[in-house]
Design a protein around this nucleic acid. Structure first.
Lengths: 247, 247
DNA sequence: CGTCGGGTTGATAACTTTCAAATTTCGTGG
DNA sequence: CCACGAAATTTGAAAGTTATCAACCCGACG
């Protein structure tokens, strides 16, 4: 993952990009911006939103319900692309909220469309990246629909660990995690109280400890085996396409 | 929706396509194929899959779990694109199974990549279509995570109705629905027994009747109001982009 | 020093699953 | 056209999981 422009690393995994394409991509990182923790970057219903490339900090995307509750769809960490959908559609269908203070590169609609015109294969690469994100949402859906609260919580914490490891922010030992139990609850479709009990059980079973903003894997291998975690959906390579696209 | 090539209709909603682009798109419908009900088009873990454009019949995409249960991620109806992810990634991360007998156009990896080369803006249009599908998965996730069994079931049946209406296969009165209660259960993260009870309640409340392969809306407006159904996530227009892309 | 958000715990209620069995529907061959 | 078996639907009762309500604790912060 290229430290300064993490998106480059991601897209390169799909198709080796030409110098020209790399420079077009670099151009997208022109507009640097910072946001405080706990603010909305994108709000459900707003129109003509920008997208962002996250360079530091955590954010979450969620949808609010009429009854006041909400469902967190996904968390994003450095290197992730934010709000592609809210840029492609006229009006945003979800919220994007900062979890910590963050740094991003802002990508406006014209920026992206111009980039696609200048380097058409970038659109294919972004399509690939978007599909990888969708695969994560799907896995999340499976977890909420068919896994127990215990397994589902472990899965989320394992997935975040795997993703953070890819960008050098986590190890098999653990990682720093700025999420509150309320946020975990909203992501997992559970109540905060129940999340608390699940975390306690994970701790008492000596599988993992989540306290004071840090996730520690007390027994990584046993945890993975216990909840049937498989990273398959995270590391898709697209090598079959490399030639076709490079052609 | 163009009867013969429904995909054209969908993509045209995003950007008006040139004659050349339309002809490239038409080329994708070369390889017609048929499948019986209850077979796998794509199987989790298989490599080098094709994608398909569904022209008649229903299919579902689902993921299996180690314990033998499964989660249905989405249903597809005529006009939908199937298995884009299993084509972009080397190995398929989910199954695609026919619900009824179907007719499809098969799209192989090279077909699609060549099409993108010949008409680069098609990649952007497909990206847009894929994002719309993702929006549906996200809405499904929200339903499973934060809505009651009752609301969630009603939502699914309303969504299918709305989508079928778009392709002329349903009205405000109802539609033909080939799904079994087991399939609904696997889609909604519930047990088949509970689905049955929810359907009974919907019937007894005079909201909707699902029997003998037909969904009848007994009181469409009251149902929509009762469960807070909002089609917002289904009908995204991409007009802001039309100019930019057409430029 | 008081307040406030986040975490923790117990008791109770609500919702959903599981198990088991009866009933209906539907395709197929006689 | 009817009989038959398999699959789908339906219902009841009991068990299990998770939510809700209500406290209490704690550390950060103005």
């Amino acid at each position: 993952m290229t430290e300064d422009r993490p998106l480059v690393g991601k897209l390169s995994a799909f198709a080796s990009l030409t110098a020209r394409e790399l420079s077009v991509l670099a151009d997208l990182h022109r507009r640097k911006r910072r946001f405080k923790a706990g603010v909305d970057l994108v709000h459900q219903g707003q129109t003509d939103q920008s997208a962002y490339i996250l360079t530091s900090g955590w954010v979450c995307s969620h949808k609010g319900l009429p009854d006041g509750s909400r469902q967190i769809v996904d968390f994003q960490i450095p290197g992730d692309f934010l709000g592609l959908r809210s840029l492609l559609f006229r009006t945003a269908d979800h919220n994007i909220e900062t979890v910590t203070s963050i740094e991003v590169s802002e990508v406006q609609q014209n920026d992206l469309m111009n980039a696609f015109e200048a380097a058409p294969r970038l659109a294919v690469a972004v399509l690939w990246a978007a599909s990888r994100d969708e695969a994560m949402v799907v896995e999340h859906l499976v977890g909420i629909g068919r896994r127990s609260a215990f397994d589902r919580t472990a899965h989320l914490l394992l997935e975040l660990g795997a993703r953070l490891k890819l960008v050098g922010m986590g190890t098999k030992a653990g990682y720093f995690c700025p999420l509150s139990q309320y946020m975990l609850a909203d992501a997992l479709g559970l109540s905060a109280v129940h999340i608390n009990r699940v975390l306690r059980q994970l701790r008492e079973d000596n599988l993992l400890t989540f306290q004071k903003g840090r996730v520690v894997f007390d027994d990584f291998d046993r945890l993975v085996a216990r909840v049937g975690f498989d990273t398959g959906y995270l590391d898709h390579d697209g090598p079959t396409l490399r030639e076709a696209v490079a052609a």
